[in-house]
């Protein structure tokens, strides 16, 4: 059931990313929704699931982009692994640690992704700092909203059920 949920989340993230990216294509403060899903899976299901999620989602994302297939997948599986390991070693349930996780994950992702491209001499990233910082903030905001909604959902459903029972 959890696997299906992750697959749906990844598919939704890619669909939303491709659907809305043409509206913000010239903006610099873009978000990487797939990365948000990978970090969420890492913190909620551990490094193994996050790695596989990052790997598969990254491959699809690479195939839909004009870059080398595997670059994004490698970056996302790396982020999934380390975020998952970090989430197992430390308590990451409060808001601040989660925000830090999303910020750090975006920086690591950008480092691996851009580093690989630069290392292989395929692309240059002259001044990526502002773009990466904007994306880190965007990912953190979206990630925190996602966590809040997903964690609040069972409580809301339960309260509605209880209210319905008391009415009868």
């Amino acid at each position: 059931m959890r696997t299906v949920g992750v697959l749906v989340a990844v598919a939704l993230a890619i669909a939303l990313q491709t659907f809305f990216s043409r509206l913000v294509v010239n903006g610099t403060a873009a978000v990487d929704l797939v990365l948000v899903v990978v970090v969420y899976v890492a913190l909620s299901a551990g490094p193994g699931a996050a790695m596989v999620t990052g790997s598969l989602a990254g491959l699809v994302q690479d195939a839909l982009s004009s870059g080398v297939i595997g670059m994004g997948a490698l970056a996302k599986s790396t982020v999934g692994f380390f975020a998952g390991v970090f989430g197992q070693q430390f308590i990451v349930t409060a808001s601040l640690p989660r925000v830090v996780m999303f910020l750090a994950a975006t920086l690591v992702h950008a480092g691996v992704f851009m580093g690989l491209y630069a290392l292989l001499g395929l692309r240059t990233f002259p001044t990526p700092w502002m773009g990466v910082a904007g994306q880190a903030v965007g990912n953190a905001v979206i990630g925190m909203v996602a966590f809040t909604i997903i964690e609040a959902l069972p409580g809301v459903v339960e309260r509605r059920r209880a209210a319905r029972r008391t009415r009868h």
């Binding site: 890619i14 990313q17 491709t18 659907f19 809305f20 990216s21 043409r22 509206l23 294509v25 873009a30 978000v31 990487d32 797939v34 699809v60 994302q61 690479d62 839909l64 982009s65 004009s66 870059g67 994004g72 992704f113 994306q135």
Partner: peptide, 11 residues
Amino acid sequence: AGGASPDFRTI
């Protein structure tokens, strides 16, 4: 559709 990755500008 637009690009799937924010690092590339594709449609």
